[in-house]
Amino acid sequence: MKEQMELSALGAALLEGAERIYGDMQDWRRDFHQFPELAMEENITASKIAGVLKSIPGMEVITGYAMPTSVIGVLGGDIPGPALMLRATMDAVAAEEQTGLPFSSCMPGVMHACGHDAEMAALLGAAAILAEHREEMPQRVVFLFQPAGEGRSGAKTLTENHFVERFEIGRCAAVAWTPELPYSELYTKKGVMTALSDRIHIDVRGTAGHAAEPHMTVDPVTIAANIIITIQAMLSREVDPREAVVVSFGQVESGTAYNVIPEQANLWGTLRAFNPKTRDFVQSRIETVAPAIAKALRGLASVEYTRNYAQIENNLDMLEEILRIGVPFFGEDGINMLERPLLSGEDFSFFTHAVPSVFMLLGTGLEYPLHHPRYDVPESMLPFSAAWEAYMALTLSGN
Rank of each mutant, 00 (worst) to 15 (best):
A13V: 04
E16V: 06
E19M: 07
R29Q: 08
R29D: 02
I44H: 00
S47H: 04
K48L: 01
L53R: 02
L53E: 00
I56P: 00
M67L: 08
P80H: 01
P82K: 15
A95M: 13
A95T: 11
Q98M: 15
C106Y: 12
M107Y: 13
C114R: 04
A126Y: 07
L130T: 04
H133F: 10
M137Y: 05
F145D: 00
G149M: 01
G151L: 10
T159A: 10
E168K: 15
A176Q: 14
P179N: 05
P179F: 08
D198Q: 09
R199I: 09
I200A: 05
V204A: 08
R205G: 11
L235K: 07
D240P: 07
A244C: 11
I261A: 02
Q264D: 13
L271M: 15
P276K: 11
D280H: 11
V282Q: 02
V282K: 05
I286N: 09
L297T: 10
A301Q: 13
A301L: 13
E304T: 15
Y305H: 07
Y305G: 04
A310R: 15
A310L: 12
E313L: 15
N314W: 10
M318S: 10
E320C: 12
V327L: 03
G331V: 05
I335D: 02
L338D: 02
E339S: 14
G345E: 06
F350C: 06
F351N: 05
L362W: 08
G365Q: 08
H372V: 02
P383D: 03
A390I: 01
L396C: 03
